[in-house]
């Protein structure tokens, strides 16, 4: 981590000392006020947390029901008896392991390209002044606005024709799903551009003075400073791919090639939904992402140059 640049005067240190003293005084005098505030804060936090968790609880509880007590009235919160076997049946019903494996590979490939390339492209937009920059950036935003539903068919035709041109077929492969990601992803580029814009120029001047070029500065200065932001797009990119539905559904034909969301859809026929299995499979499908998020979340704390809002 780059240390925040001290403007180099002694008065700064003196100022800090004074601030510390003021703080101590303040907190000594009114500890009760602080306690009350903190209690209220926690009560609200817990209430909101419960409302966030309830639907999850219902999802898991449905996963443990039989087809018949899914919609029983009054609703059963804790199903009796709990059908733990539903989780195993998921793996019997469809090649779920294979499907998870596919999705991990697919998501990893897409995430890698999207994150690395988005950082590079965003750096170009955020740090350089060049002709046509505004229209180019606007074009990037326009591509986000285009309704994806309307480009399904043209894109499919494109891949089908491209396949014919190369005398092969890209349909029923992961190529149409992964390849378009190699230049980065517009939403992530937008986010990283905005994030880089918050980084003051001062940080790079020293590096420039030492003869570093923009490429080095990106990876030696900007990248390390932006780990939390990079992790944000990593999570979002991985999740977006993990949860992608329409693309994999359209391009993949074999059950063995399905991704997780398409696999989940198989528990939901046109006329008959197998709720418990669907929820069991959904529960399994979100676990990797919860783990991913939990392992990353320690980075989402105030950096060493700040202490957050108190």
């Amino acid at each position: 981590m780059m240390e925040y640049k001290n403007y180099g005067s002694l008065t700064m240190d003196q100022e800090r000392e004074i601030i510390e003293k003021i703080k101590k005084e303040k907190y000594k005098r009114i500890p009760l006020h602080k306690k009350v505030r903190s209690t209220i804060k926690h009560v609200i936090l817990i209430l909101v947390a419960i409302s966030m968790l309830l639907p999850f609880f219902w999802m898991v509880s449905t996963a443990l029901k039989t087809n018949n007590n899914v919609f029983s009235i009054p609703p059963q919160w804790i199903p009796r008896p709990a059908q733990w076997s539903n989780f195993l049946r998921v793996f019997d019903s469809i090649p779920f392991l294979r499907i998870i494996f596919n999705t991990v590979g697919y998501a990893a490939a897409v995430t890698f390209f999207e994150v690395v390339m988005s950082v590079i492209v965003a750096y170009g937009f955020a740090r350089f002044r060049f002709k046509w920059k505004k229209p180019l950036f606007l074009f990037l935003l326009i591509t986000i606005m285009i309704p994806g539903e309307i480009t399904i068919v043209p894109t499919y035709i494109f891949w089908a024709k491209l396949g014919e041109f190369f005398d092969t077929s890209f349909i029923n492969t992961y190529i149409p799903l992964i390849l378009p990601a190699i230049g980065g992803q517009a939403v992530h580029i937008f986010f990283m551009t905005q994030y880089f814009r918050t980084i003051p120029k001062d940080f790079t001047e020293a590096a420039y003075m030492n003869g570093a070029n923009s490429w080095t500065i990106l990876w030696k200065v900007f990248f390390p400073m932006s780990i939390p932001a990079v992790l944000t797009i990593t999570i979002s990119s991985f999740m977006g791919t993990w949860n992608a539905f329409l693309g994999p559904l359209i391009y993949l034909n074999d059950v063995e090639k399905f991704t997780i969301q398409v696999g989940l859809a198989m528990f939901q026929g046109m006329f008959n939904v197998n709720w418990p299995l669907l929820m069991a499979a959904t529960t399994i499908s979100v676990i990797p992402m919860i783990i991913l998020f939990f392992s990353f979340q320690k980075y989402f704390i105030p950096s060493n140059k700040s202490s957050g809002v108190k």
Binding site: I152, V153, F245, L246, L249, I250, V262, A265, Q268, M270
Partner: peptide
């Protein structure tokens, strides 16, 4: 085609 059957067929 477990869902959106006609979307995929038409595409």
């Amino acid at each position: 085609i477990p869902q959106d059957y006609y979307t995929k067929i038409q595409t």
